[in-house]
Amino acid sequence: METRVINPWQWQDQRSYVQAVEVKQAAGTLYCSGQAAVHADGQSSNADMKTQILLALQNLEQVISEAGYESRNIVRLTIYTTSSAEFFSHFDIVREWVAKHGCKQALTLLEVNALFETLCVEFEATVVK
């Protein structure tokens, strides 16, 4: 697989994403459903935003790994949150997770009215191999 990052500017670098990622000769593509703070028994978390971000990222990483892919090959990440203000107060967690994996992904953040049950954040990803 070959990837090329397209960044006409540099301001996005501090926000842990890129403007676009071109993928050539991918051996596979994994489309991950939104991963949220849901425990292994299927129970939704009712914890605070920070705790939900950590659990949702852990779940995303597990799905990617069990599919035989690597988190570093995420090329598209969409984040849904019920409170962008609260989410951004913990954005350093996402930045650190992205840096840990060396991701260079296109990113979209959406504030939504509600997520399932008590959830307040969800991560949806596209990963290539």
Rank of each mutant, 00 (worst) to 15 (best):
M1W: 03
M1N: 08
E2I: 13
T3Y: 12
V5K: 05
I6P: 00
N7F: 04
N7M: 03
W9I: 08
W9L: 09
W11P: 10
W11M: 14
Q12L: 14
Q12C: 12
Q14D: 09
S16N: 13
Y17H: 15
Q19M: 09
A20K: 08
A20T: 03
A20Q: 04
V21M: 06
V21Q: 04
V21S: 03
V23F: 06
A26H: 07
A26Q: 10
A27K: 15
S33A: 13
Q35H: 04
Q35M: 11
A36H: 03
A36S: 15
A36M: 08
A37Y: 09
V38A: 00
A40I: 11
Q43K: 10
N46K: 06
N46G: 05
A47V: 06
M49K: 13
K50C: 11
L55A: 12
A56I: 11
L57V: 03
L57T: 03
L57M: 07
Q58R: 12
Q58C: 08
N59G: 13
N59S: 08
L60G: 10
Q62D: 10
V63S: 06
I64V: 15
S65L: 03
A67K: 14
G68K: 04
Y69W: 08
E70A: 13
E70Q: 15
S71Y: 01
N73E: 05
N73S: 03
I74L: 14
V75D: 05
L77K: 01
L77P: 05
I79F: 04
T82S: 08
T82K: 03
S83L: 15
S84H: 02
F88C: 05
F91V: 12
D92G: 03
D92C: 02
E96P: 00
A99G: 09
A99L: 14
K100N: 05
H101I: 00
G102Y: 08
K104E: 13
A106Q: 06
L107K: 09
E111F: 08
F116A: 11
E117A: 14
E117D: 15
E117C: 09
T118S: 14
L119D: 02
E122M: 12
E122N: 11
F123P: 04
E124V: 13
V127I: 15
V128Y: 14
V128D: 06
